[in-house]
Design a protein around this nucleic acid. Structure first.
Length: 264
DNA sequence: ATGACAACGTTGCGTTGA
């Protein structure tokens, strides 16, 4: 089974890329972020024609998340945003994936973590509160669903290996000690950064600024992550960043991250 | 210190992202 996360930066604009990628790469489960469309505009029919069932949670202009599964697998017990955390912004969608093979179900959480703008701002404070709420909720989810995948645009680098210029970007947004401490608290629930379970090329990133030829110069950050629970760790077989998707004309500024998980 | 680039909403330029 292969699971992927991709911040598409507008599903309306990126739909041809998404359909093409689903058709050629055929991932089993996909988390999308930054749909930037309202629920009535979600392209469920086009995705169904490509062989995917979906659950979505959008809003006007910003944010918006979705989960896709390759039929005949199904999504059940869909949860939108973090229970008990009042939030105007559509950032989280969770569901239980029922594989058609009869393999054990998987709880999948797709998330678009807040950007946070800069330390000291209201948006940074919101990011911190959101991260606390996410941790508390994931702790509960793990008790009910030990086989859990948390994936999405975390908007945080795990450590300096994830940063093209760690000195120049020290303590700036995505790289602050406070943000990384929140990730450490999340990881302490018994989650693993699937990408780092395997040897990886140096300077591996998942996002590059549209400006200043950042992608061509590989000036990027690894902020898109797939984290898996203890129960799934030994089933992980590979985890890669699909850089080729960032090279195409009119790309998202993010590349997908792809995890291969053995059945069981 | 600021902008760059892309997308959105709106209709020209302001806001947001990372």
């Amino acid at each position: 089974m292969r699971l992927a996360t991709w911040n598409v930066n507008s599903l309306a604009v990126r739909l041809p890329h998404v359909i093409d990628w689903l058709t050629t790469a055929a991932p089993d489960v996909v988390a999308l972020q930054e749909l930037k469309l309202t629920d009535d505009k979600f392209p469920a029919d086009a995705l169904a024609q490509a062989g995917y069932a979906a659950a979505w949670f959008g809003q006007k202009t910003y944010n918006g998340v979705a989960l896709l599964v390759r039929s005949p697998a199904t999504l059940t017990e869909v949860q939108r945003n973090i229970p008990g955390f009042a939030d105007e912004q559509a950032r989280v969608i969770a569901a239980t994936v029922q594989p058609a093979s009869g393999a054990a179900p998987l709880r999948v959480v797709g998330a678009y973590f807040p950007n946070g703008q800069a330390p000291g701002t209201d948006k940074f404070a919101y990011k911190m509160r959101w991260l606390d709420a996410l941790r508390d909720w994931i702790a509960q989810e793990l008790t009910r669903h030990p086989r859990l995948v948390l994936m999405g645009d975390f908007n945080i680098t795990v450590d300096d290996e994830d940063v093209w210029d760690p000195e120049g970007l020290r303590e700036t947004i995505h790289c602050t000690t406070e943000e990384r401490a929140k990730l450490a608290a999340l990881r302490a629930l018994g989650l693993h950064d699937a990408f780092r379970l395997f040897p990886q090329p140096p300077k591996s990133y998942s996002w590059w600024d549209y400006r200043q030829l950042a992608f061509q110069k590989n000036r990027g950050l690894r902020i898109d992550h797939i984290w898996i629970s203890d129960a799934l760790k030994d089933l992980a077989r590979a985890c890669t960043i699909e850089r080729s998707l960032r090279k195409r004309p009119q790309p998202s500024d993010h590349a997908p991250v792809l995890l291969t998980l053995a059945d069981a």
